[in-house]
Computed example of a mutant assay.
Amino acid sequence: MEDEPWKTPYVMLAVDLVILTLRRSRLHILLVERGVEPYRGALALPGGFLRHPEEEIPAAARRELAEETDLDIENVHLEEFRVYGTPGRDPRGRVVSVAFLAIAPRLPEPTAGTDAAAARWQPVDGVLAGDVRLAFDHRRIAADGVERARAKIEYSALATAFCGPTFTITELQEVYEAVWGIQLDPRNFYRKVQKTDGFIIPAGTERKAATGRPARLFRAGPHKILYPPMVRPVMSAALTGEGP
């Protein structure tokens, strides 16, 4: 029996976005309410298909970020972190999705666009716990994106992407606490930050406080890779200030 002639498989290429920010000192993720089938009315990650064969994948991610959320993307950290292509993950056919992690400080309330009926910020802990049902395999993608951020702030300066142009060490500590989901000892955190060369540098100004001494302001330093790294502590060490 002769083999059937090989045919080019029909595969659709899409991008999905895990967009993270801090709101009221808690880590939030952006979700959209789908306005079209499949999963109409369900919450999902922002994203969509490439528009044409010539569109670059990072360009498609930036376009979807702007179209579905109406956010200013100029100051958003955007990076690809994984590809998802399990057969059956999308009822419309064989869809391969390139997932991107996007991070920016103090993002505003989003405005939905294109095929999204609404857009909202949702606390990450509830999404990962399954309290919020997501369409497709988007809870897995969200979990992978959050873990990417949790791991990367250990060895890179990614935590500063959650901050404004200048920030206090207390604000930087709030980033680590929100992303890791644990409390950190302030003195131990201050010591670690000061030991990590090129992580942050003084901005030369101070921020007046309602009470007490003014807080020194810092900005992101020149080093993108941290040495020594800001190792994620276990819960007991984080609360007591012990550990590396």
Score class of each variant (00 low, 15 high):
T114F: 04
G212R: 08
F81T: 05
W6D: 03
V32P: 00
A59C: 03
R207G: 01
V18D: 01
G113Q: 11
P123D: 11
P53D: 13
A237Q: 15
E80H: 13
R219K: 14
P214V: 14
A116H: 04
I141A: 08
Y227Q: 13
G181M: 01
K195S: 12
G88P: 08
E109I: 05
V193R: 05
E33G: 11
P222K: 06
G47I: 06
W6S: 10
P165E: 11
L239I: 12
D125Y: 03
V83K: 15
P202T: 09
D115P: 00
R82H: 07
R120N: 01
A59V: 14
Q122F: 13
D144H: 05
A151T: 13
I200R: 00
A220R: 15
A237H: 15
P87F: 02
Y84W: 02
A178C: 10
A119S: 11
A14P: 02
I29C: 01
Y190K: 07
Y10P: 03
E147D: 15
A151V: 13
F162A: 07
G145V: 07
E242F: 08
L45K: 02
V76E: 05
D70I: 06
L71P: 02
R40P: 04
G145M: 09
T166D: 07
P123C: 12
A117L: 10
I19G: 01
A215W: 05
L65C: 08
A149D: 09
T170V: 09
G241K: 11
A143Y: 01
G93S: 08
L45Q: 08
R63M: 09
A117C: 05
R40S: 07
L22W: 04
I19M: 08
V132Y: 04
T168W: 06
F100R: 06
R139N: 04
E154T: 13
K7S: 07
V193F: 05
V95M: 09
F81Q: 03
G93L: 07
D125L: 06
L13I: 12
D185P: 03
L65Q: 12
Q183Y: 13
R140I: 12
A99C: 14
V96W: 15
G47L: 06
A209K: 14
H223W: 04
D115Y: 12
E206F: 07
R34L: 13
N75K: 08
F167T: 01
V193S: 07
D90E: 05
F189W: 02
A143E: 10
E79N: 01
G145D: 02
P91W: 05
Q183H: 15
M235V: 14
H52Y: 05
